[in-house]
Amino acid sequence: MHVARAVVAAASYAYRLASLKVEADLDLPDLSPWDGPSAAVPDIVIRLDEVPTQLQGADCIEAIFQTRGRDEYLLTLPGTGRVLVRRGREIAIEPERDADPINMRALLIGPIQAVLWHQRGLLPLQASTVVIGGRAVALAGPPAAGKSAFAAVLAQAGHEILADDLCVIEADGSSGSAIVLPGVTQLRLWRDTLDQLGIAAKGLRAALSGKEKFLVDCWVGCREKRPLAAVFALARQSNVALTVQRLSGMAAMNTLREVVHMRRAASALGCDGDIAAGLTRLSRAAVPVWRLSLPDDPACLPEAMGKILRAVE
């Protein structure tokens, strides 16, 4: 086994993810350093360790992942390595020998983090979230919808970033309202977006190998939970007009279901009931869901921002 034992012994990092303490064997510069009591027991532990090729007693075996009950999720990516997530609090990583650590970090910060939240019973959406008027506004959509780019435009206009690409929602026990946890506040932006925003790529850290995607940390991030004011589902398409349309009933519910992060994995983990309950809570909390149709033209984003600001006023 070629796991970097020396690294395990030599390095240990502590980070904050929402209110949780993360202890890791590897550097995760996407996360904020831990600023709580140094003696605090970690809530999440990320270890470089041996990871089995199969889950013993797996009850779901898919093309690249396996699950056992709700507690174990094993991801195998040829050329990258294996990751085992347990009980929403332990992540074991066994990278392949020549794997680029950047790609493993991207997996941890995106898909693996989403699995972790599912195991913890919260609702993660594919959405970048900004703070408008003290409340969270989620910009949701599939990859390539332009979530982070739109968040950057709002950040440039002075709105704090609450989380990029992953919007984790919990229910407020007393009021039943939907609360968004603070997440990774660095935006992952493509080179074209940087050029459009007038940001130089030089000196920025790469977010993936072989792709001109960078981590950008030049705006103000919010470290506090915020009540969810609205979800805008971005629908980018060529030859459409810029429109914003309020959805209701099943249309709203189905739109939200489409943007649940790592839904296939969550389903295999038996989280469908939690997801349905989470979506129902959003509906009961009367969180407005809007469909924002965007033409495939970045020049429309300032006008789209105006529509969002008017909608959440």
């Binding site: 898919e62 093309a63 690249i64 992942f65 991801l75 990516l77 680029d100 790609n103 991207a106 997996l107 995106g110 898909p111 594919q126 990859p143 390539a144 993936l208 190998s209 072989g210 792709k211 992060h261 790592m262 839904r263 296939r264 994995a265 295999a268």
Partner: peptide, 10 residues
Amino acid sequence: LGIPSAALSY
């Protein structure tokens, strides 16, 4: 596959 390709290299 149940994983976002946006988090993957080419």
